[in-house]
Nucleic acid binder design. Structure first.
Lengths: 176, 176
DNA sequence: TCCACTCCACCAACCACTTGGTTGAGGCTA
DNA sequence: TAGCCTCAACCAAGTGGTTGGTGGAGTGGA
């Protein structure tokens, strides 16, 4: 339910009230229970919805350097256009510590992300696209950590990602 | 109040209950109100306490490369020994979006951190301690973002920080 | 066409329980 | 006595969740 997502973005899971969500949609809160048996079900729906939004970040072009650049550019664009999406992600990260179902959803999502990055970095190693050969696993984690770190600071994302690119790809010909 | 901090670490602000905190300390919840007029005051105390814990990360040695390494090593050590501290920090980051007082406390804390990093990076530029001259402001943000990104994944911190060091300092003689 | 009959989305009222916060009446020490 | 610290009892305002029931859109048979 989109309304629930918006509520979480605004007030966090701490402020998620079934009655409020129901009112946003214009129905009674008991009717909401008709669609989501428990609050937990609603939370899970929000988690699934939020993670699904990242599917738009597809595989990208075959050239590893371009693929990495576009991946980061995609993230930055989403961060600019839909900052709430990332806020909810942080909220979910926190909730995953106490909620196995959310943890599971998030884990699957992150595994997909990790795979995309690993593939790009591996391809880049093979093609000699990076400034220096990279430890794929660790660099994947570095990129993920950096991305997670700017989730609540959209303004910082641009420069930070640029710097990260520069360090990974090196200074060889920026945008061709 | 330490008990409150522990509660936040366990259950988040979402699960922070005055009665529970009071019980942890062994007093009545109304007595708690005698020490903290409102819940908000307690939350603020937790915020102040949490940020104060990072004061142990002092200036470090004069040599920039060593200073950076020790700074990251210090963070990693804290992350290993007191992961809850970082969890609460994330929780605070989120809460700061809705709570100006928390936002203020966090902003001051982050300003201090930013200054330490900026100083080290600037000194490193002057001494030619880095692999290449750095944009101090952006690199500061990069380090902060990375650190924030691993707050909920202590295991990743070690390798990620090592990689970050390698990229900033270059491969010139690891630990002397 | 009419008549059950079944779904489905919906709501008002209610329930048991929890929340943060208040009050007034003691106790303890100085 | 004065000034804290403590507590039990209480309160109003919610909380998630349940219940019994309403009305309309379909469906099948006669």
């Amino acid at each position: 339910m989109l309304a629930a997502f918006r509520r979480v973005a605004e007030a966090g899971f701490e402020g998620l009230r079934l009655r409020q969500v129901a009112e946003d949609v214009g129905i009674d809160h008991s009717t909401l229970h008709h669609h989501f048996a428990t609050k937990q079900d609603l939370v899970l729906a929000v988690a699934e919805y939020a993670t699904r939004q990242f599917w738009v970040l597809g595989d990208g072009p075959p050239d590893p350097a371009r693929a990495l650049r576009e991946h980061l550019a995609g993230l930055r664009r989403m961060l600019d256009e839909r900052p709430e999406l990332f806020v909810v992600t942080v909220e979910l990260d926190l909730r995953a510590r106490r909620d196995p179902a959310v943890d599971d959803a998030l884990r699957r999502h992150e595994a997909g992300w990790r795979e995309v990055l690993s593939d790009v970095l591996t391809a880049g190693n093979a093609a000699g696209a990076w400034a220096a050969p990279l430890d794929v696993a660790v660099t994947t984690e570095l990129v993920i950590a950096t991305a997670k770190g700017v989730r609540l600071a959209p303004a910082a994302a641009g420069p930070v990602f640029a710097q990260l690119e520069a360090m990974v790809i090196g200074d060889r010909g920026e945008q061709p």
